[in-house]
Amino acid sequence: MVRLKELNQIEKEETIKKGNFACAGCGLNIALRHALAPLFKQVSIVVPACCTSVIQGMGSGYGINVPIFNIAFAAAPAAASGVAAAYRARGVDFVAAAWAGDGGTYDIGLASLSGAAERDEDIFYFCYDNGLYSNTGGQKSGATPRSARTTSTPTGRTTATKSIARIVAAHNVPYVARASISYPRDLYDKVERAKGIKGFKFILIDQPCTASNVFDSGKTIEIGEYAVKSGLVPLYEIVDGVLTWTSRTKRYLNPEKRIDRDGEAFLDKYMSLQRRFRGANPELVELLKQDINHEIEMLRRLQEDSSIQPWE
């Protein structure tokens, strides 16, 4: 893993600019900083409707330090395919990427994502996932965890979250990974490794949203950590169809280990900090716990040796 001192050197020139429109405590800026650092001065990003279209700002300049093509909600993977084709046609060594939220990825952009993945476009696809439509005020997306209240599920989401990473992996693309802004060095490493792979690279980044999921802006990192430690956001890479768990989070794949030193469940800690889970229906919360185990079980089947438990 990249050492912090190295990263501090590498990121001397940053991929974002100071004083952009992101909310105080927004994890999106953290994702942009560390996910794009390995591609700095090589990458252009295509951004569909999402918070990244807004945080650039409005006026005399924009607050992100890489080229951006802002495009319609469902169009980012196709447009990034076009950018990559132009770079190939011109014979220049630049990288095209789509940078989309979970709404643009799980929902409205899914057909376009599937098309680009199936064509094995030589692009990066980054999905920064805050589990709802934040830019429009907090509606349910395909990524919203069961039981979470949103403005379109005021009594809590009743169905299971879509497993976008497994959907993309089912396209037989060379690289799929899940990362979190609470583990920036791991995020950086994953992009750095994927850089060397030709073909479609999908990176799903968990990014707690202070504004719509309503928590204290200082808690962004802590909540992201609990998401991982509760098993809700397992971290892994799927390279050429074979899954490897990210070592730092492996122990939390074991349902028995998802508790802190005082015996408090990380899922409870995760939920209690966010207003979207306040008064959550206990039956839905039970189902959410099953969702977590189910997803890890399904991912286990992609291990090289699927007979062993993920935490072994």
């Binding site: 319609a72 447009a79 395919s81 076009g82 132009a86 770079y87 046609a89 095209a96």
Partner: peptide
């Protein structure tokens, strides 16, 4: 591409490229 929506998006991307 997999749709006309993507066809026009892709050529806008290449034009931007």
């Amino acid at each position: 591409v997999e749709s006309e929506h993507s066809a026009l998006a892709a050529v806008m991307g290449s034009s931007a490229g």
